[in-house]
């Protein structure tokens, strides 16, 4: 029965490999999305500004939309709802978080870019969306977003829409992050205390 044993061993190896592959799909998909711009996912870590000349011949409209979500008594507002920028130029836009609840809590703004191809050309130098935020009851916190649309932005993209959805972060999720050794950077207004390598 050595033939059978050999076949079984081989199929078990394939089996194990496929199970691992299923989980590997998560980072692979993530990487794939970032490379190709599928899903409008943007880098969630700070990127360096590309020092480049500014393309003054083109003006791109960048819209910002902020959304709340159930279960978090917070509000995220954008102070400049729409800006017109030249590719290559760095622009700063201000957002404000308000916790109008009665308790301190955690939240996180999750970005999405439309059209999704545009996410390839959007570089964020500073963004509140890189980590979870903690706000005390009644607290208001203004945060900047500094971004750049690179010069190689395709000509047919004239409008870029950036949507931030504010989500609550519950204890379970925080705990899972700590377990995964990526503790959230604690951001209280003014002070950033990285809980790990953020």
């Amino acid at each position: 029965m050595t033939g059978v044993q050999r076949t079984v061993t081989r199929t078990l190896v394939v089996l194990l490999a496929m199970f691992v592959f299923a989980f590997a799909l998560v980072p692979l998909y993530d990487a794939f999305c970032r490379v190709t711009g599928i899903n409008g996912k943007v880098e969630n870590t700070a990127q360096a500004l590309i020092r480049d000349s500014i393309d003054e011949s083109r003006v791109i409209t960048v819209q910002f939309i902020t959304r709340g979500s159930p279960g978090l008594p917070w509000k995220l507002e954008v102070l400049d709802r729409q800006v017109r920028v030249h590719p290559g130029a760095a622009t700063e836009v201000h957002f404000a978080f308000t916790n109008h609840g009665k308790q301190a809590g955690w939240g996180r703004a999750v970005p999405s870019v439309s059209p999704s191809e545009a996410s390839l050309y959007m570089r964020k130098v500073t963004c509140f969306c890189f980590q979870e935020q903690r706000l005390d009851a009644g607290e208001r916190y203004e945060a900047p977003l500094v971004f750049q649309l690179t010069r190689d932005l395709p000509d047919d993209i004239k409008t870029v829409t950036l949507v931030y959805t504010l989500y609550p972060v519950d204890d379970k999720t925080l705990a899972a992050k700590v377990l995964a050794n990526e503790a959230p950077a604690i951001v209280v207004p003014g002070i950033a205390v990285p809980g790990g390598e953020a």
């Binding site: 979500s69 159930p70 279960g71 978090l72 008594p73 609840g101």
Partner: peptide, 18 residues
């Protein structure tokens, strides 16, 4: 009041403030 305004996370109760 808070439930109607903010909804309940993970439940079908949306935040009606929006």
């Amino acid at each position: 009041i808070a439930t109607v305004i903010n909804g309940v996370a993970g439940k079908p109760m949306p935040a009606f403030s929006s």
